[in-house]
Design a protein around this nucleic acid. Structure first.
Lengths: 208, 208
DNA sequence: TGATTGGATGAAGAAAGCTTCAGGTTTGGA
DNA sequence: TCCAAACCTGAAGCTTTCTTCATCCAATCA
């Protein structure tokens, strides 16, 4: 309970009334906006508060420090992507691999590319010490979901299901990141989405 | 030439005598070590200098600011990986895809996994504003090299060569990153390397 | 309507770390 | 050997930004 107690993640005060619940959401949105506009390097709590239209003090009422603010923002974003994957996994249960895999891949792609600037800006947050924990956590959820559906496919995979899930996820996120970082115009996204699905299909197509 | 002049990348002084050339190398090594041990968040120029066994002043003699120090460190590392890819591209020219692609993939993998902690630690640097420029630059080199060899393969690819090169690179780097971030034990690396090659092979195996 | 709790404010304290610079040391050629 | 250039030193200035807290406003309920 000494110095490392600063790692507390929870807001120091839970929103009770409606007003403050909105305030928290506004602050989180502002964080993303500041991140997109000036980047993580020049993001300051004062700037975020300004953008949110509240005072810094208010911000610190719900987030114990800058870190936790960034963490919460990242988590909120990545969680939507993960949920998207989970929904797709649910949806394509029992389907053949050549239907299931593209379906999941496309769901991921759409979620990730919905707002390229936001996804892109958040990469800088995810590479921090705390960001990595969040990534780990969500990677686990994704892997679990994928492993589970893969097991329901009628075909038998050429390799260990867990390994396959890991590879698929790695390729998806990696190619997604590359597309974002290379700043492909939205026009090209459809082609890329399709090609990603093709690659993953080819991979799982190597059935026994 | 006002405030943004701080983006200068070049050392403010070029090493002339042997002594200082060594000093620069020592500082770069120390930077990686500090990065690995305490992470980018807590890396300070003083700490780097200390680790390098020189004074901060010396550090600032060769690097105009902290940014440029980090940039130089990142560039040195990524360049070795890129050169590894380029060598492999040279080596597998004219080979069939099922030889060429695994060859290149393995070369990449080995270079990236040679020192997992270092590769891993540098991810936090690469997501900064300046780091992105370096990534862009090297991504371009990699894409070019890959595109060039792919064109020499006896088979015809099912898609645009540039697109294929991009996808292959994205999958390689993405899976590489996932492996690093998930902290797989070195024992598993061989299996993973093999599986990566398999995936890429399956992808390019879709010949016309 | 008065009391109580929740919510918001923002100037200022405090810490942290980057960067400078005046002065000392080493190198290597003449 | 001697000197000029190259190199190194590190305490301290300076800036930046996080974070606090005393105080005021708003909402809810008896």
């Amino acid at each position: 309970m000494s110095s490392s107690a600063a790692l507390v993640l929870k807001p120091r005060k839970q929103p009770v009334q409606r007003r403050s619940t909105e305030t928290v959401a506004v602050i989180l949105d502002a964080t993303i906006q500041v991140l997109v506009v000036v980047g993580k390097e020049r993001l300051t709590t004062t700037r975020v508060a300004q953008r949110a239209g509240v005072s810094v003090g208010t911000l610190y009422q719900y987030f114990p420090n800058k870190r936790s603010l960034l963490q919460a923002t990242l988590r909120r974003h990545l969680t939507t992507v993960t949920e998207s994957i989970e929904r797709a996994c649910e949806l394509y249960r029992d389907e053949p691999l050549c239907v299931m895999v593209p379906g999941i891949s496309n769901a991921f792609f759409s979620a990730k590319m919905k707002d390229p600037k936001v996804s892109s800006a958040l990469y800088s947050v995810s590479s921090d010490v705390d960001g990595k924990r969040i990534l780990d956590e969500l990677r686990l959820r994704n892997t679990k979901a994928l492993t589970t559906v893969l097991a329901t496919a009628p075909e038998r995979l050429a390799v260990d299901i867990e390994l396959a899930a890991f590879m698929l996820l790695g390729a998806m996120t990696g190619i997604g990141r590359s597309i974002l970082e290379a700043r492909f115009p939205a026009k090209e996204h459809d082609k890329l989405r399709q090609e990603l699905a093709n690659m993953l299909c080819a991979y799982v197509g190597r059935t026994v």
